[in-house]
Every structure is written in structure tokens, then in C-alpha cells.
């Protein structure tokens, strides 16, 4: 009797591996496409990018100009 290297179990295992691979690749593609869409939409693109964010800096009351006293 010849030994069969490919058992039915291997087929099922393979379908699981291939399926998971496809799902993972699909997920990566999805997140990438989502990123492109979100960036294109702009909207709330404000991050800590080494620039002072006006919305977060404390409000500074304008100082009244000092009147020069004329002599």
C-alpha cells in the first residue's frame, strides 16, 4: 500500500492557511485604502507636528499700550 503524503487533513489545513492569508492581506489593503480616504477628506487633521496649535495655546489678553507721557 502506497503511503499518501497528502492526507485529507492537509487539504483542510491548507484551506485554513490560505483563507487566513487572504483575510489578512485584505485587511491590510482595507486599512491602506481607508487611510487614503481619510487623508483626502482632511477634516480633523491636526496633530503634534512641531507647530504651535492655536486651538491649544492659552489665550493672551492684549496688553494695553503704554501711553507716552509728553513732557
Amino acid at each position: 500500500m502506497a503511503l499518501r503524503t497528502e492526507h485529507e487533513i492537509h487539504g483542510r489545513r491548507k484551506s485554513r492557511n490560505v483563507g487566513l492569508g487572504v483575510v489578512l492581506i485584505g485587511f491590510v489593503a482595507l486599512v491602506f485604502a481607508l487611510t487614503v480616504v481619510k487623508v483626502q477628506q482632511g477634516g480633523l487633521l491636526e496633530a503634534y507636528d512641531h507647530q504651535p496649535r492655536v486651538s491649544m495655546t492659552p489665550i493672551v489678553e492684549p496688553v494695553a499700550p503704554v501711553q507716552e507721557v509728553q513732557q
Binding site: I9, G11, R12, R13, S15, R16, G19
Partner: peptide, 10 residues
């Protein structure tokens, strides 16, 4: 148990 992908979908 040696499931195939379809079993997880089910």
C-alpha cells in the same frame, strides 16, 4: 478537530 476555513466562516 481539523477545521477548514469554511467552518470558521460558518
Amino acid at each position: 478537530p481539523e477545521a477548514e476555513f469554511g467552518d470558521f466562516v460558518a
